[in-house]
């Protein structure tokens, strides 16, 4: 399979170089090349919000650094969590005297290295708190939410906490708000074609032509079930039924829908998916507003998508819609 690069090892660094050159007024590199920071000094009184993740999932999370969302992103090798030492460097470069929240999308390497970095920072006297994020209903059954993986629904936490931090919310309030967003978020993903791993240049999984994987991991981990692909309205109904079984949403409630493409699915398809989600919700007399549709948390050119649903309160909705200046986060209207 073909892939564009100079050398495999240089891919993350070449990407970061291009990114910071493209948006010099918004992002810059830290002392370490793998740390992306806001160019404009953030308000020193504001809590800083940061995250580390493996590369290969862009625009997440590098593309969301900017005013109103993230203060820093620590970028690991392809599909590999950054080391705890690198995360610690990132914490130090973005540390705020009001404290720092390290967001951790729940995947083993990210959890271990992220928590280790927080403990090291706490040993040095810094107020750094890890906030674990998990939303993928296919990765553990109802009742075991804490064992679930982080998926695209974590974007709700980035945006809402980022805007709330900009509004000078305290670290304790932010942690509680983050936990509330987490408990009101559910995600289910499906994949129809594998992307190509930049590490092996091979497809990450194979699937019969007419089938779809339900519950796809962001690293190409096999799904939990397979089913015939069928028409998109049928697939979306199936997925929405699973989500609503997991988290009850009563009629007259308002939800925010996030349709995330996995890298190889067109906007034409993603808007069709959103249309079906809207129809499904309308039939249940559930409202939706301020959706986010596009490819944000990707696995190279994997074809597939996930549906994330957040049941917001007034505060969440306000911060979800707040202005921001990060390069790859879309307009929320």
């Amino acid at each position: 399979m073909k892939k564009l690069y100079n050398t495999k090892n240089a891919m993350p660094d070449d990407m970061i170089d291009g990114f910071v050159q493209a948006y010099p007024n918004i992002v810059k590199k830290g002392k370490n090349n793998r740390i992306v920071l806001r160019t404009k000094q953030k308000d020193p009184e504001k809590v800083s919000l940061i995250i580390g993740n493996g590369s290969g999932h862009e625009p997440i999370a590098m593309g969301f650094v900017g005013e109103g969302i993230l203060d820093a992103n620590i970028v690991g090798d392809v599909f590999t969590a950054p080391s705890s030492d690198l995360i610690l460097e990132g914490i130090k470069e973005s540390y705020s005297k009001s404290g720092t929240i390290l967001l951790i999308s729940r995947h083993e390497g990210d959890v271990i290295n992220g928590k280790a970095a927080c403990l090291d920072a706490q040993d040095e006297g810094m107020d750094v708190r890890p906030l674990l994020m998990y939303d993928d209903i296919s990765s553990a059954p109802k009742g075991h939410e804490e064992d679930r993986r982080g998926a695209a629904g974590t974007i709700f936490i980035y945006k809402i906490l980022g805007a709330a931090a900009e509004d000078n919310m305290t670290i304790d309030e932010l942690m509680m708000l983050g936990e509330r967003v987490r408990s009101n978020t559910r995600t289910l993903g499906v994949a129809i074609n594998s992307g190509i791993s930049p590490i092996t240049n091979e497809e990450m999984f194979s699937l019969p032509k007419d089938e779809v994987f339900i519950g796809m991991g962001v690293h190409g981990e096999p799904g939990v079930a397979r089913r015939k692909l069928g028409a998109v309205n049928d697939l979306v109904s199936f997925m929405m039924d699973r989500i609503l079984e997991d988290k009850e949403i009563k009629p007259e409630n308002n939800v925010i829908v996030l349709i995330n493409g996995m890298g190889g699915t067109t906007l034409m398809e993603l808007y069709s998916v959103f249309n079906e989600v809207s129809i499904y919700l309308k039939n249940k007399k559930i409202f939706n507003s301020s959706p986010m549709i596009g490819s944000f948390s990707t696995t190279q050119e994997t074809a597939g998508f996930s549906i994330s649903i957040l049941i917001p309160d007034e505060i969440m909705l306000k911060f979800w819609r707040a202005p921001h200046s990060s390069p790859n986060f879309p307009l929320i209207l």
Partner: peptide
Amino acid sequence: DKAFKAETGGASGSLFSI
């Protein structure tokens, strides 16, 4: 412990350095 962790980098390095 820090020398060990800096050399190994990964998640197991974080755990074994403790």
